[in-house]
Computed example of a mutant assay.
Amino acid sequence: MKFPLFVLCLALGLSACGAASAQLPAGAPPAAPPALPSATSPDYLAAMNRWRSSLSAFASADKEKLPATDGVLFVGSSTIRMWTHLAQDFRQSPVVINRGFGGSTMADCSLFTHELVVRYRPRHVLVYAGDNDLAEGRTPLQVLESFAQFANTVRETLPEARISYISIKPSPSREALMPKIRSTNDIIAAYVRTMANAEYIDIFTPMLGADGRPRAELFLGDRLHMNETGYRLWQSVISAHVTAPETLAASPAPRPVQSGPGTPSGLLSAAP
């Protein structure tokens, strides 16, 4: 997976990715996705400061009862955090972990992959993030780069884990971002097709009406977050992709978990 992202996009002939790549200087040499910031980098420290309360809450929950390994883990923004009946909706799996933190971005998820994903050693990782990145001004290609970093980190330690990217949803309040949302979904879907044991889950299409606009009946009054009807739709689409462990072929145990870059003392101290 560590190959030039914009070269992949151009090879696939995707207009969205091509537009993003056109921002590069003429004749620029191919560049791999940028490395994740170190624990002392301004990006990591800023994110840690911003999300310290969420990370501390997860650590406290783990200290009380650490989830079993080999589970199904959902991570991402408020759409995941607000899915309060997630375990019930996917009860075909005995272990379902919710590590959504509201307002987060795909960039945040890539920074905290060790803290929020790898340490639990799940067999299946489903990530929903990207719309907040676009709302903050990032490009579709930048969201793709963050997802690639996230997936690389998961695979380095958990090579057998399945990775699913849940497409960015079409929210009525962010209808102005629809072109960028479509572009991001398209280039990540294309990227995921180059990966082994990974999939792109399209929830974007079923959330559109016959007029091609977001279905307002799926959302709360803020026109951003989903109501119960929206979550029922998500459950109906995603459940087909979440397989009960007894139906899976036996696979090698994952490599021992490494501590994440710069995990602060006192946070996530309950890690096995």
Rank of each mutant, 00 (worst) to 15 (best):
L8F: 15
L45H: 03
F219N: 04
T184G: 01
S164W: 04
E217R: 13
S146R: 02
E64M: 11
L36K: 08
G266M: 04
W51Q: 05
V125I: 13
S269Y: 14
Q235N: 04
P67I: 01
V7K: 15
L144M: 08
L177T: 01
L55V: 03
A161H: 08
T113M: 06
F150V: 00
A249G: 08
A176D: 10
L268Q: 13
A253C: 01
T157C: 04
V117L: 09
R232Q: 12
L220R: 15
L268H: 14
Q149W: 06
I166R: 03
M106E: 09
A26S: 13
S93E: 14
I168Y: 01
G209D: 07
Y165G: 00
I203C: 12
L12Q: 14
V117W: 06
G13S: 06
R121Q: 15
P261G: 11
V192I: 14
P172R: 03
I80A: 02
F3I: 13
S60M: 11
A39H: 08
T247M: 14
T113F: 08
G103A: 08
D131E: 15
M48S: 12
R232W: 09
N98P: 07
L220Q: 15
L220H: 10
T184C: 10
A210I: 08
V117H: 10
P245F: 00
D186W: 01
P179Q: 02
W83R: 04
I238P: 05
K65P: 00
P261S: 10
E199F: 02
H124S: 11
Y120V: 02
E199G: 13
G100C: 06
E115V: 06
V75S: 07
L144C: 10
P25M: 02
E217D: 15
N132P: 03
A240P: 01
Y120K: 05
R91C: 10
F3G: 03
P170N: 01
L8E: 08
L208N: 11
C17Q: 05
I201R: 12
Q149C: 11
A59C: 09
A57D: 13
S41C: 08
I181F: 06
N49Y: 09
K2T: 12
L73P: 07
A148C: 11
L141M: 14
I188R: 04
G103I: 12
N98D: 12
V118R: 15
A61R: 13
I188E: 04
R223K: 14
T40Y: 10
A59G: 14
G137Y: 03
T184H: 02
L158Q: 09
I163T: 04
L14E: 08
V127N: 04
E199R: 15
A28S: 12
A135F: 10
E217N: 15
Y165L: 00
A59K: 07
S259E: 11
P245Q: 03
L218H: 01
R255A: 12
I163Y: 06
R121F: 01
G260V: 08
I187N: 00
R215G: 00
M48N: 11
S269W: 13
A240D: 13
R193M: 10
L141C: 14
L5N: 06
A198Q: 06
D222Y: 04
